[in-house]
Amino acid sequence: MSTLKNLNSTHLSAEQIETVNTSLGSLETALIDTVSNLSSEERRKYGSVSEQNKLFVNKVNDYAVNQPTLKSPDVDWDEFTNDFNSRTVLEGVIARLEKLLTGVQNAKILHDHDNYQAALDDYAYTNYKTGTSDPNYEAKQKELKQFFSRTRKVNKEDTNEQE
């Protein structure tokens, strides 16, 4: 079976890399006062607003906007509105970043695959050339050989089934 090679031959130019890094720096600077570092415990504690509860918040916001006479005097409505607007903007930013992240991860996967296939080709060539009188290929083969195990790794679940 033939392996597909060079799945991604689109590469970033030095100018594009500089633009990406500058843009990421600008984004980090723009969000420096907004981003929060939460511990895993805090994420569990505060991150439990389910989709149902978000719909509830949206409905309360609709009432606050469309029927302001029904608003509770116990709520700081300016802060509520600021939180609501920030949340909405950040949801949009997250969606855009996730889409971009998925695309970048996919591109990296293809480059990783291309590198690995080329490295396998180089290793095969090294094995072929090992029989020649050039000792450099033998040293290279010895160094690269460590990445290939001769014994089959046994899956723990497989051994449990055999018992």
Rank of each mutant, 00 (worst) to 15 (best):
A118S: 13
N53H: 14
V154F: 04
S72D: 09
N21A: 10
L7I: 05
G131Q: 14
A107M: 02
E28I: 01
V75F: 12
K153P: 11
S72Q: 08
V93D: 05
Q162D: 12
T130K: 12
I17A: 08
Y63T: 15
N53C: 06
Y63N: 13
A30C: 09
N155I: 06
Q162M: 10
S133L: 00
E18M: 09
F148C: 07
D76Q: 04
S9L: 10
N85T: 09
K59W: 10
N82A: 11
Q16V: 04
V154C: 01
K5C: 08
E28F: 02
K142Y: 04
V57P: 01
R44Y: 12
A118R: 13
K156D: 11
N127I: 07
Q117P: 07
G131K: 14
E42N: 12
L38Y: 09
G103Q: 05
F80I: 06
E157A: 15
S36T: 08
L70V: 13
L12T: 02
N127M: 13
S9V: 12
V20W: 12
S36V: 11
T81W: 03
Q16R: 03
A14Q: 15
A14N: 09
N58T: 04
R87N: 15
L97S: 03
D122K: 05
S23E: 01
S72W: 10
K99F: 04
S86C: 11
L7F: 02
Y63S: 12
Q141N: 12
N82L: 10
S2F: 07
N136D: 14
Y125S: 13
S13Y: 09
D112L: 01
K156I: 07
L38N: 12
H113S: 00
E138C: 10
E42P: 08
S133A: 10
R150F: 11
E143V: 13
N85W: 02
K45D: 09
L90F: 10
V57D: 02
A14M: 11
L27K: 00
L24V: 15
T69E: 15
S39L: 00
E163V: 07
V49K: 05
K45A: 10
R87P: 07
E42M: 08
N37H: 08
M1D: 06
E28W: 00
V49I: 15
I109N: 13
T34R: 06
D83I: 02
S40W: 03
L31G: 04
K129Y: 02
N6G: 15
L24M: 13
I109A: 11
L31M: 10
N61R: 14
S149T: 13
N8V: 04
Q117S: 12
T3A: 00
E98K: 15
A95D: 09
